[in-house]
Amino acid sequence: MTMRAILSSLLLVLPFLAQPAAAQDAAAGERSFNKCRACHQVGESARNMVGPELNGLIGRHSGAVEGYSYSAANKNSGLTWDEATFTDYIKDPRAKIPGTKMIFAGIKNEKEIKDLIAFFKQFDKDGKKL
């Protein structure tokens, strides 16, 4: 292979290597949240349903939503919902918190989880968009 061919190949590949990792996409996360809507709400009018409302989720302690009847496993888990903890949990809720009442097959796709987190991060504890 000639030097010219090597340089040509590099010029084609370099722009792709220089691309940053895909950013979180809150709009895509909102679409993903459709999987959660049967049990959870978010936003200013959110209320507890089958599951607790999810306003201010990131940074909140597990089992902390007032008025929601959590399982003992969830209340006593000692978890704080940061991005890493939520990512592990949403992949397989019953593996992360054995004894949780949450019945959900999980979301395995890393990009989808990141987008869902970006969607949640838009809402403060009162459901107001930041």
Rank of each mutant, 00 (worst) to 15 (best):
S69E: 13
L116V: 02
K121P: 00
A21D: 02
D88K: 14
D124S: 03
D115Y: 00
L79F: 09
L54G: 07
K125C: 09
S9C: 15
W81Q: 02
R47V: 15
N74C: 08
A46K: 11
K129Y: 00
L14E: 06
G127F: 06
V13L: 11
G67I: 15
S9M: 15
A95R: 11
F120V: 04
P93C: 09
P98L: 03
Q19F: 04
N34W: 04
V13D: 03
I58E: 06
Q122R: 09
L10C: 13
N48Y: 15
T100S: 10
D88N: 12
D92Q: 09
I6Y: 09
A28R: 07
F120L: 08
A38I: 10
A105E: 11
F16W: 12
K96A: 08
A72F: 12
M102E: 05
G29W: 00
G56N: 09
A26S: 06
V13K: 07
K111P: 00
A64N: 15
E112R: 00
L7C: 14
L17N: 10
I103G: 12
C36V: 09
L79E: 04
E83W: 00
G63F: 12
L116E: 02
K35N: 06
A64P: 12
A84F: 03
S62T: 13
I97E: 07
M1V: 11
M3V: 14
D82V: 02
G29S: 00
S8Y: 13
P93S: 08
N48L: 15
H61E: 13
P93M: 10
A46C: 14
E53H: 15
Q19D: 01
P52T: 14
D92R: 09
L54A: 08
S77H: 09
M3R: 14
A28N: 03
A64M: 14
F33P: 04
A118V: 03
T100G: 06
D25T: 01
G51M: 12
T100A: 06
Q24E: 05
D25Y: 01
D92M: 03
K121E: 05
A95M: 05
S32K: 05
K101P: 08
G63K: 10
L116K: 01
F16Q: 03
V50I: 14
F16H: 06
V42I: 14
P52Q: 14
I97F: 07
C39V: 11
L57S: 10
E30D: 06
T100N: 07
T100Y: 04
A73M: 08
T80P: 07
D92H: 10
G106K: 02
D88F: 04
E110A: 06
Y89E: 02
S62E: 11
G127V: 09
A118L: 04
F119P: 00
A118R: 01
A28L: 00
I6L: 09
T80V: 13
G63I: 11
I107V: 12
G43E: 11
P15N: 04
F86G: 05
N76P: 12
V50Y: 07
L116H: 03
P15S: 03
A84Y: 03
I6M: 07
P93L: 10
K108N: 05
D92S: 12
L10G: 14
G56C: 08
E30K: 09
A18K: 07
D88W: 04
